[in-house]
């Protein structure tokens, strides 16, 4: 926009006006803020390449004085079960996602485009269920799993999440936007409903499915609560849950800092980014 001439009646508020110096200061402040936001990552990556005693050196430097990167990462990858944890996380997240898609897509198509009795009740239930977090239903689900003896299995880790009411809602809204005329034209052309779903609806829904997949994968990759409840053994432990073993301070027991376990920073840095790399959004 055009430069704005100083108004003849200048007030004390005038300093708020965007001037180039003001803009420069904002930019500088924004970058300082960004440094604070990013610093934990920088510290983590830097520490993951340091020997343990250097991590807690009084004078922190980004570049390690002694480079231990190879040893540290080698240790995590080959000498500890961390790869198993990552694999567990992967199995659980992929498993959840696949079943979520398999259950949600047909249901949401029926809700969006087919008429049947009870559809509004079902949709109302879906909406209501969106607000129910896992924390509320965890007790009966846990007891149920105990009763059938499935605790500490992949099934137990996936079960509460294999139907995503959020996905049903999202896809239903998306499918509703799909023109009825095209579906009717396809019916006239002799497509069966299944063919309509597979050949028309599904390809058009790829962006929504992709967005949901990222969301779902990240949410369950980052989940700590449910694995904490159902996982009991090392060989089912997820990567996120394994962080529990490595908290460097135990304030409850001693109130004093304990030396960090030798491997921790590099382990965190392997883990701290979700592979899909986007959006926590788990609150939705």
């Amino acid at each position: 926009m055009a430069d704005i001439s100083p108004s003849p009646t200048a007030t004390w508020f005038d300093w708020v006006k965007p001037k180039s110096t003001g803009r420069l200061i904002t930019t500088v402040l924004l970058f300082i803020g960004a440094w604070v936001m990013v610093f934990p990552f920088i510290w983590m990556i830097s520490s993951s390449m340091k020997p343990t005693d250097e991590v807690y050196d009084a004078d922190f430097s980004i570049i390690p004085k002694t480079f231990k990167g190879f040893e540290n990462y080698y240790g995590v990858i080959f000498e500890q079960p961390y790869m198993v944890f990552l694999m567990n996380s992967m199995i659980v997240c992929v498993g959840i996602l696949v079943i979520q898609l398999l259950t949600a897509i047909p249901a949401s198509y029926a809700l969006a485009k087919l008429k049947f009795r009870g559809s509004s009740i079902l949709f109302g239930t879906v909406i209501a269920a969106i607000t129910i977090p896992i924390n509320v239903t965890s007790i009966p689900l846990y007891i149920g799993l105990v009763k059938v003896g499935l605790l500490d299995t992949y099934f137990a880790m996936m079960f509460p999440f294999i139907v995503s009411v959020f996905a049903i809602f999202l896809f239903r809204q998306f499918f509703r936007g799909f023109p009825d005329s095209i579906i009717q034209a396809a019916r006239v052309d002799g497509f069966s409903e299944i063919e309509i779903i597979l050949r028309l609806i599904l390809p058009s829904a790829v962006p929504a499915i992709a967005a949901f997949s990222v969301f779902s994968f990240v949410a369950h990759w980052n989940d700590l609560y449910w694995p904490l409840i159902v996982v009991q053994s090392q060989d089912k432990m997820t990567a996120t849950l394994s962080m529990m073993q490595y908290h460097p301070l135990s304030t409850r027991t001693t109130g004093a800092p304990m030396p960090p376990p030798p491997s921790s920073p590099r382990r965190w840095s392997l883990h701290s980014f979700s592979p899909a790399g986007c959006s926590s959004g788990a609150s939705l």
Binding site: M1, A2, D3, I4, S5, S7
Partner: peptide, 25 residues
């Protein structure tokens, strides 16, 4: 209107240049 600034040239109202005036003025 003063919502865009020309690269060159002038806008005059009653012979007075308006280039440096804010839209409201």
């Amino acid at each position: 209107a003063g919502l865009e600034h020309p690269d060159s040239g002038d806008v005059l109202i009653d012979g007075q240049s308006m280039l440096e005036a804010a839209p409201k003025d």
